[in-house]
């Protein structure tokens, strides 16, 4: 049996969790899901549609919003009761956090961000995991009677596979230490406009923009295309733009239909955040810049003279 921790936010399932369920069904048809907190058990139908055969919905009067260690306690109590061969979760901040707590409670290894998992024996698994935000892969052997692993976002496809459902509710056995750290409040983002992570078009600027002022051109372009402005880390470290706009390994990962990189060189850590873009256009004075190798279309020009020309043509096209 494989146990999958399903992450949800007040009843909204994280899609990476469904990918984790599909990764689990490929290992063993007996996949059971654990879901904790407010709004969890209402999601049973949605989870069953991806092939989980049983859902364990954990509740406790002290559990409403996310409470990392309590969620781990819920998973841990099911491991002790039902002895799964493996425990999986989506490789998201919460998925990795909960499984880290589970692994720490059990003093067991935790293979995070896996792109491939093969169970090779009673206590052995061959895994491939992402290092450097997916720019490098590690093939490794994990020795543990219960494999604890998270799956890297989008490395497995969530496949619909309706299974008969059994829903069990259980009270999570909590101690005081499990609820010390919990969400106390939620603050809405003040950012108006299109969110970077969801934007269909991202217009990004790097060091080549030479300062904060030129970003108004990127805002104009994003405005016409209904997109969001992004940037490289050089730009956020210089304080030209807020960190919320940083694309890359330590910023936001985006997957838009179109990514326009203006004056960005294409460092590995920046590419880690934009490599899933459907079309990438690079504008750079240097035809040899690494970003040119990732691009579908390239313009070899100076952003300060080229972007005004582009904006003029975009506005004209938009008015027609």
């Amino acid at each position: 049996m494989i146990l999958v921790y399903v992450d949800h936010d007040r009843g909204e399932i994280d899609p990476i969790s469904l990918q984790a369920i599909s990764a689990a069904t490929a290992l063993d048809p007996d996949v059971q899901a654990v879901i904790v907190g407010h709004g969890g058990k209402e999601l049973a139908g949605e989870i069953a549609a991806y092939g989980a055969t049983a859902i364990h919905a954990g509740h406790h009067v002290d559990l409403f919003d996310f409470t990392p260690r309590a969620h781990a306690r819920a998973v841990h109590s099911l491991i002790e009761k039902n002895s799964p061969r493996a425990v999986l979760a989506g490789g998201t901040p919460r998925g990795n956090e909960v499984l880290s707590h589970v692994a720490a409670l059990m003093d067991a290894p935790f293979a995070s961000e896996c792109v491939s998992i093969v169970l090779t024996g009673a206590d052995r698994a061959d895994i491939v995991r992402a290092r450097w935000a997916g720019n490098m892969l590690e093939e490794a052997v994990v020795v543990a009677p219960v494999l604890i692993a998270s799956v890297q976002a989008h490395s497995f496809t969530a496949v619909a596979a309706a299974a008969p459902l059994s829903l069990t509710e259980f009270e999570v056995p909590l101690s005081e230490g499990d609820v010390l750290v919990r969400v106390q409040d939620r603050v809405g983002s003040s950012a108006g406009g299109v969110g970077l992570a969801e934007a269909k078009v991202v217009v990004s600027g790097g060091r080549g923009m030479d300062g904060p002022d030129a970003f108004s051109m990127l805002e104009d372009i994003a405005g016409v295309l209904g997109g969001a402005v992004g940037c490289s880390r050089v730009v956020t470290s210089a304080g030209w733009r807020p960190h919320a706009e940083q694309v890359g390994q330590t910023g936001t990962k985006v997957a838009p239909d179109l990514y326009i990189a203006c004056g960005i060189s294409g460092a590995t850590q920046h590419i880690a955040g934009c490599k899933s873009s459907k079309t990438l256009i690079a504008i750079n004075t240097d035809a040899q810049a690494p970003i040119m190798g990732f691009a579908d279309y390239v313009v070899v020009d100076n952003v300060h003279t080229f972007l005004p020309l582009l904006i003029e043509k975009l506005k004209a096209a938009n008015q027609k």
Partner: peptide, 12 residues
Amino acid sequence: RITTKKFTIPDR
């Protein structure tokens, strides 16, 4: 308990 066998660079 996690032993690296080797590293690879994913194809671009």
